[in-house]
Design a protein around this nucleic acid. Structure first.
Length: 507
DNA sequence: ATAGGGTTAG
């Protein structure tokens, strides 16, 4: 379903526009900054190689046809620039990933890649990806064809099998997933507890706990389940919001001589959290302690995150206190959550203390929480200071979320020059590409700042980047360009709204 | 792939 939508977006987008030139926000950043620096011409690095190939593949001259894999193959083979490209395994992987929703192009790229290197090193990974892409597109026959070829080459690994089973189960073909398990020996793999768990987990993750149960009953005589097996089921039942069955699985687990572990309990706690049944959450916590299975950092972080989602920050901090009292060893994800909680509770100094003195290792998320906190309390200087610290310490790199609060502050101050400067920094210094949420956010803010020309610019760029705008974003922008009588833009937006499958508003 | 982050409100 989602593949169909994405494909239709892609195809529709290509109909709308001549080949996109991937010049990220360049007009915008140059025009908004007071002193536009001349950007030096980059050498043909991996990114530009990738862009070159990308442009060839999607550079169809405004026609409506869906391009076949052979056509993609020929275009790439015939293009002079692509002939010069040094096709490494990493680049191939990147390309396949980029075409993960477009199996025709992906197969064309793979065929071209194979033609380029007669003595290839290790095709298995690319094949695994191809199988995955075909499975995602529910091109079962083509997928099976690939698998057969891999079987003859003795190239099927556990990873391959996992992908096939997952795609079958996810596509509603769970019987086929079971059949893959039945054929494991043909692939040179063994039917054992590990591979059985793989199948069961696949089924459970694709919301087929019932079927997984049936499979287990059938296989039980030949393959012994282990503790993981039961945890997989606990997760499966919780995912289906059937906590009763999850609790019953704990008993079943005991019946097989396994003791429920911290993972078993934490999974159920998370389920109660999502139901907002905090009475049961605390009951379960006590039960864990009583059963000699003390909660760990994951357990506490899970509870705190759920409380935070309910804006129960003080209660969340009480959970953190309880954790510290218990002597449980905190980890980075816990600290990130704690910092976020303290920030939202308005306790800046405490957050700073945790950040500076308590935490052993930090990551991008840690900085992001701190930066968001400073921006939220109008201490942008400190926020920028932390950004510079990230850049100089190089422990972790900024991402788009690092910049969101900073951008928000600029708009709040009405400093669009700074907006342009930051965008340029994101793109040129950190090689970040704007994502859907960033585009949406920027378009909204530019509209509100009565600068819908820039908003429209970003809208066009978004579409040329193959990112579908939200319905609400279109409506907002449409209203603004109408006010300014930007007739061509009005027409374009209306056309996009009619032809592109828009992203629904979140929640 | 046996468990756990966030964002955007006047």
């Amino acid at each position: 379903m989602s593949r169909l939508i994405q494909n239709s977006i892609r195809n529709t987008l290509f109909r709308l526009k001549p080949p996109p030139s991937i010049t990220l926000s360049s007009t915008l950043t140059n025009n908004l900054s007071t002193s536009p620096e001349p950007s030096p011409e980059p050498p043909l690095d991996e990114t530009s190689q990738s862009s070159a190939i990308w442009n060839v593949i999607i550079g169809r001259a405004g026609d409506n046809r869906v391009v076949s894999e052979d056509e993609v193959f020929h275009r790439l083979s015939d293009d002079p620039l692509c002939k010069k490209v040094n096709l490494s395994d990493t680049l191939l992987h990147k390309l396949l990933h980029r075409f993960r929703d477009d199996w025709r192009s992906a197969l064309g790229v793979l065929k071209w890649a194979e033609s380029r290197k007669a003595h290839k090193n290790n095709p298995t990974e690319a094949y695994d990806t191809a199988v995955d892409i075909l499975g995602k597109a529910k091109k079962w026959d083509r997928m099976k064809e690939f698998v057969e070829k891999m079987r003859c080459d003795k190239a099927v690994t556990l990873n391959t099998v996992a992908k096939i089973m997952r795609r079958f189960a996810g596509g509603g073909e769970w019987e086929e997933a079971v059949r893959v398990f039945d054929r494991l020996n043909e692939f040179g793999l063994e039917k054992n507890t590990e591979t059985m768990n793989l199948l069961l987990d696949t089924l459970c993750k694709e919301k087929r706990a019932e079927q997984a149960r049936a499979v287990l009953l059938e296989l039980k005589a030949h393959i012994k389940p282990n503790a993981n097996t039961f945890n997989i089921f606990i997760h499966g039942w919780c995912k289906a919001n059937r906590v009763e069955e999850a609790l019953w699985t704990i008993q079943e687990m005991r019946g097989h001589g396994f003791r429920p572990c911290v993972i078993s309990y934490t999974t159920i706690i998370r389920c109660y959290c999502l139901q907002c049944n905090f009475i049961k959450v605390y009951e379960m916590l006590s039960e864990m302690e009583a059963n000699g299975c003390p909660p760990n950092s994951v357990t506490y972080t899970t509870i705190m995150s759920c409380l935070n989602a309910q804006k129960e920050f003080e209660e969340s901090l009480r959970v953190a206190t309880r954790m510290k009292r218990s002597g449980c060893e905190p980890d980075t994800l816990f600290y990130n959550c704690l910092i976020h909680t303290l920030a939202r509770a308005g306790r800046l100094e405490e957050a700073e203390r945790v950040f500076r003195d308590e935490m052993g290792s930090v990551n991008t998320s840690t900085y992001n929480s701190m930066i968001a906190m400073y921006c939220h309390h109008d201490e942008e200087d400190k926020a920028v200071e932390l950004l510079r610290e990230m850049e100089s310490l190089k422990v972790c790199e900024p991402d788009v979320h690092t910049y969101h609060p900073l951008l928000r502050s600029c708009f709040k101050r009405g400093d669009v020059v700074e907006v342009g400067r930051l965008l340029k920094e994101m793109v040129t210094k950190h090689h970040l590409s704007l994502d859907e949420s960033t585009y949406t956010f920027l378009i909204q803010r530019f509209c509100r700042a009565d600068m819908c020309e820039w908003a429209y610019c970003l809208f066009e760029e978004m579409i040329s980047q193959d990112i579908a705008p939200r319905h609400r974003t279109c409506l907002l922008l449409l209203e603004e360009v109408k006010k300014k009588s930007m007739l061509e833009s009005v027409e374009r937006i209306e056309h996009v709204m009619k032809t592109v499958k828009l992203t629904a508003p979140v929640k």
